[in-house]
Design a protein around this nucleic acid. Structure first.
Lengths: 108, 108
DNA sequence: AGCGTTCATCGTCTATCGGCGATAGACGAT
DNA sequence: ATCGTCTATCGCCGATAGACGATGAACGCT
């Protein structure tokens, strides 16, 4: 991932990119997925499906969204593909939001 | 919609509510609006419209979304309605996300 | 070879989002 | 009383999200 540090100096991460990352997190199923992934060190899709009461195709879609957003790493072992939380990326999103909130609280 | 199963193990805000708040933030226009609101202590809709290059109706919609999400306070003076960032609520969202991220990093 | 499992993708359906213009209500000013 | 301004809401639309089932490919195992 890029541009984790640049924010605080002067500019912010542009609204576009912040919004995009938050969008990936703005669905309860995806948050559940993240929690489950982090709880069990690494997961295959099936595990998540069992845990979530959603169709396999739906879960796969959500996983893809998380991967595309860069929040989850994906190792495409044909069977038992493994998904794993990217903690750094996640922390980055959190930091971006915190920076935004902070700027809003200080008034600039 | 049901995802009632797992939450209690960790005891965070449920995924649903976290996702809802993040959803309100997951649009570049709304992030811009928040920034503008915080920069100028309080705003009427018109100010935001001038700043954002969007139709007035669209801006009003976005403001409503932010208000409904509890992130912006709204004082309905008939003319010159005033919108103001709710810093506490915003900080709360940030904290929720931080908690989620933290739990993901620590693995539990 | 054949079976069961896992997974990604495709197509489809519905609901919601995001945008706009138009409109109506409520002022302030003339 | 009328005009102009500012808001909020309504109706409409295209596009996207979110869900599902079906399908086919890639294994592991017997």
């Amino acid at each position: 991932m890029n541009a984790p540090l640049i924010e605080k100096t002067c500019g912010f991460a542009d609204s576009q990119s912040v919004a995009a990352k938050l969008a990936a997190l703005s669905h309860p199923a995806r948050i559940e997925i993240l929690r489950h992934l982090s709880a069990s060190r690494s997961c295959c899709c099936r595990e998540v499906v069992d845990h979530l009461d959603l169709a396999q195709s739906t879960v796969s879609q959500h996983l893809k969204i998380l991967v595309d957003a860069g929040l989850v790493r994906y190792e495409p072992d044909r069977q038992r593909s493994r998904y794993e939380v990217d903690s750094d990326a996640l922390a980055d999103v959190s930091a971006s939001l915190a920076a935004l909130v902070n700027s809003c609280c200080t008034g600039r």
